[in-house]
């Protein structure tokens, strides 16, 4: 005989031994996976976009007859691409065997580490690498001729000033672009961790 749905519900739950609550520390799996997947995929695309940028710059410089500077810039950007690629690999090696909370924490630390390296590259490595390009570009120009007439101390001061300016612009540019591209995702990651911490206090 057909049972009414009310009876199925009532008797069904009466005979269910226990409706056990999930363990708090290992939840938010799907939410975490999505956030991490988005960060990983965006950072890969972001890094890959360096290649067309390098080719465009090379094209422009070659068109201007500055083939050597073009090659130099391509080498610089390609190096940056491979350095980034290596750093991004680290994100995929974060231990997934732990519970979701530990995984997210480790992932966040790894992201922080990458951002620290990237700031260092932008602030120190980039000006150091770009200054020779400047030198190559202005080598036979009037500006360089005028520069060469200056006192050595003044020359050093100008180069240092230029390097500092480049460094500041590079760091600002890096922070700004990171905020625009990854800001909301990193906030999501942070919020998920905070939510889990709040729940785990129980």
């Amino acid at each position: 005989m057909e049972k009414s749905i009310e009876n199925i519900w009532k008797e069904g739950f009466e005979s269910e031994a226990k409706l056990s609550s999930p363990v708090i520390s290992n939840l938010y799996k799907k939410k975490s996976k999505l956030v991490i997947q988005q960060i990983n995929s965006k950072s890969k695309k972001d890094n890959l976009s360096l290649i067309p940028v390098a080719l465009i710059i090379f094209g422009i410089l070659a068109f201007m007859g500055e083939m050597i500077i073009g090659i130099y810039v391509v080498i610089l950007i390609t190096t940056l691409f491979f350095v980034n690629k290596e750093m991004l690999k680290d994100l995929e090696t974060v231990d997934t065997k732990d519970n979701t909370y530990s995984y997210l924490l480790n992932y966040k630390n790894q992201v922080k580490k990458i951002m620290k390296y990237s700031t260092w590259i932008a602030g120190f490595g980039l000006p150091l690498a770009i200054l020779p390009a400047y030198w190559m570009f202005f080598e036979d120009s009037k500006i360089m001729a005028k520069f060469n007439t200056l006192h050595l101390g003044m020359e050093i001061l100008i180069v240092m000033g230029l390097a500092l300016l480049l460094s500041a612009i590079a760091i600002l540019g890096y922070r700004l672009s990171t905020q625009v591209v990854y800001g909301s995702l990193l906030e999501k990651l942070e919020n998920t961790i905070e939510d889990m911490e709040e729940l785990m206090e129980t």
Binding site: P22, I24, Y28, K29
Partner: peptide, 16 residues
């Protein structure tokens, strides 16, 4: 199960 646990957790958090 994975979705269920996420939903459960979100409900607990929203209740709080």
């Amino acid at each position: 199960e994975e979705d269920f646990q996420d939903y459960y957790q979100e409900v607990c958090l929203q209740l709080w």
